[in-house]
Amino acid sequence: MNVRQAPAERRPAAGGPGRPRRPGRPGGTPRPGTPRAPRRRWTNVWPLVAVVALVVVGGGAWATVMYSSLLDARSVSVRGTNVLTPQQIKDAARVPVGKPLARVDLDAVRRRVAAIPRVAKVTVERDWPHTVKIRVTERQVAAVMPESGRFAEIDTTGVRFGTVDAAPERVPVIKADPATVDQQTLRGVVEVIGALPEAVAPRVRDITARTRDDIVITLDDGVLVMWGGAGESPRKAQVLVALMKHKAKVYDVSVPEAPATRNAPL
């Protein structure tokens, strides 16, 4: 006897029709179409907090530097003096001691020190936390010129910057009218002095500057060198060395292409 067996019941596929979907687990992936709960994005806030903190800290530091007495000017350091004294530099600088160092006007200090005639160059800077540093370079004497019973000191640029009672040894004396001679003429004379041959420079007794183009050198034995203007001084020095191989009372190198000698002074 044949017994027909009923077909086995088919299970619906997971998630398919006829089977309810399992509810989502807490914290699991939400069902499609279900709105997400809004989250606070603190990661966007922290950069702003950091910027605000930096502004507050920076503002406090700036206020401390600019206005606090914790970083005030308390001392002045001076370097480079020779004839001048550090106190003379400090007196001229007039650094406002007690004022915040950051607010000290360095340019004003520099101008006041540079106004000293003997100062050729000056630098001023802050040395934290409490010092203003001043370094000067004094003018060097290249020649002197008689003036009112004393001698005016002249530097390499022709600037008159001081006076002395007597002419220093081995420093050339310029004979010129102090009331009318200009800086350009004095500069030309100093250029001539710098161009003189080594064998001649120590023998210079004085230099007469009638005009900027009429410079006459007198050597220690009375010999005259007619130099002319300061132009072509290196070339004139070479010509003078060649001329002085022959003894003469006057050597004229004012026109180096046509030098001349004479045995009688002018």
Rank of each mutant, 00 (worst) to 15 (best):
V3S: 05
A8D: 05
E9F: 05
R10Y: 06
R11G: 08
G15E: 13
G15Q: 10
P17G: 06
G18E: 07
R21A: 14
R22C: 06
R22M: 13
R25I: 14
G27P: 11
P30W: 11
R31K: 08
G33S: 10
R39H: 02
R39T: 03
R40K: 02
N44C: 01
W46R: 04
L48C: 05
A50H: 07
A50S: 12
V52S: 10
L54Q: 01
V56N: 04
T64V: 14
V65T: 05
V65D: 00
M66P: 01
S69G: 14
A73L: 06
S77R: 13
N82G: 14
P86E: 03
Q88H: 05
I89W: 03
A92R: 07
V95M: 06
V95S: 01
V97F: 11
V97Q: 10
G98A: 05
P100C: 09
A102C: 00
R103E: 15
V109F: 04
R112L: 06
A114T: 06
P117H: 09
V119S: 02
K121D: 13
T123R: 10
T123F: 03
T123W: 02
R126C: 12
H130A: 13
K133W: 15
R135M: 12
T137R: 04
A142T: 08
A143H: 08
A143M: 12
A143T: 09
V144P: 03
M145G: 04
M145Q: 08
P146E: 09
F151R: 00
F151E: 04
E153P: 00
I154S: 01
D155M: 07
T157H: 12
R160K: 15
F161N: 07
G162D: 15
G162E: 09
G162A: 15
D165K: 00
D165F: 00
V171R: 01
P172W: 02
D177N: 15
D182P: 04
Q184M: 09
Q184W: 05
L186G: 04
G188M: 02
E191H: 08
E191P: 00
I193T: 03
I193F: 07
G194C: 07
L196I: 12
A201S: 14
A201G: 05
P202V: 09
R203W: 13
R205S: 15
R205N: 13
D206L: 08
T208D: 11
R210Y: 14
I215C: 11
V216N: 02
V216A: 05
L219W: 14
D220R: 00
V223N: 03
V225C: 06
M226G: 08
W227K: 00
W227H: 02
G231H: 10
P234A: 08
P234V: 10
R235Q: 15
Q238M: 06
L240C: 06
A242S: 13
K245H: 14
K247D: 15
K247G: 13
A248Q: 11
K249D: 15
V250H: 07
D252E: 01
V255D: 10
P256G: 02
E257K: 07
T261G: 04
N263P: 04
N263C: 01
L266R: 11
